[in-house]
Write a protein that binds this DNA or RNA. Structure first.
Lengths: 113, 113
DNA sequence: GTCTATATGTAGACTCCCTATTTATTGAGG
DNA sequence: CCTCAATAAATAGGGAGTCTACATATAGAC
């Protein structure tokens, strides 16, 4: 997977993966890998700064915890983050529709257009 | 459309739009807009450098022409570019599958997994 | 004592997309 | 003649976010 393709979609991925239950960074990376069947292997240098950014934006709420002697920062989706995720899902749909319509080998626009 | 989402997908868009017939930069921008029903309005500062980059990479062959007193640089898809486009289409499919599987509100992996 | 897995974080490089601007021609309208 | 809009190409500089590489630390296996 070309690194740059992910750009602009990290927020959606991170918000989505903590939707059901709060997770810490390391677990988020694993969840991303599992949910995508190995396709998404996002490095720590991408995830940790992105989580901080989303926390600053108010979309995630982070909290320190200790489990098995190891410190963890667990991130929970805020109400604001949940609204943002809804927007991201909508934007994703528009995005894939737009790119898909151009990449479609048949070369046409919408059938009813 | 958030500008950053396009990042890493410009090559696929540009190669795809000149697949049928050679086009010049200005026409490429219009084709992108038409094919996507207005969703993709890519600025000249993005397209012209990208076309040069793809030409340097050997995926496009540019040639100067004059039509109605105006100079145009028309770009044609090379064999190498056609192969690259096939790869881009495949990558696009993997990409949407991966992101989609994470963004899917049901939160599951593949149904048979 | 070494290795692996777990867990978080930063510095700096790098890509490349966007904004803003420049240059030039054609044709319409006044 | 002048202005405006559409057509056509290009560059400089800014900027945001992802990646590579590295640093730090604990726990458990061997």
């Amino acid at each position: 997977m070309n690194p740059d393709t992910l750009r602009g979609h990290m927020d959606a991925l991170l918000l989505s993966v903590v939707e059901r239950e709060p997770l810490h960074g390391y677990a988020i990376i694993e969840a991303l890998r599992e949910r995508s069947d190995g396709a998404l292997d996002v490095p720590t240098g991408t995830v940790y700064p992105a989580l901080r950014r989303l926390e600053r934006a108010g979309y995630l709420a982070g909290e320190w915890a200790v489990a098995g002697g190891r410190k963890r920062r667990t991130y929970r989706l805020t109400d604001s983050g949940r609204a943002a995720l809804t927007g991201e899902r909508s934007a994703w749909k528009s995005f894939t529709t737009a790119i898909g319509s151009v990449l479609d080998p048949s070369g046409g626009r919408s059938p009813s257009g």
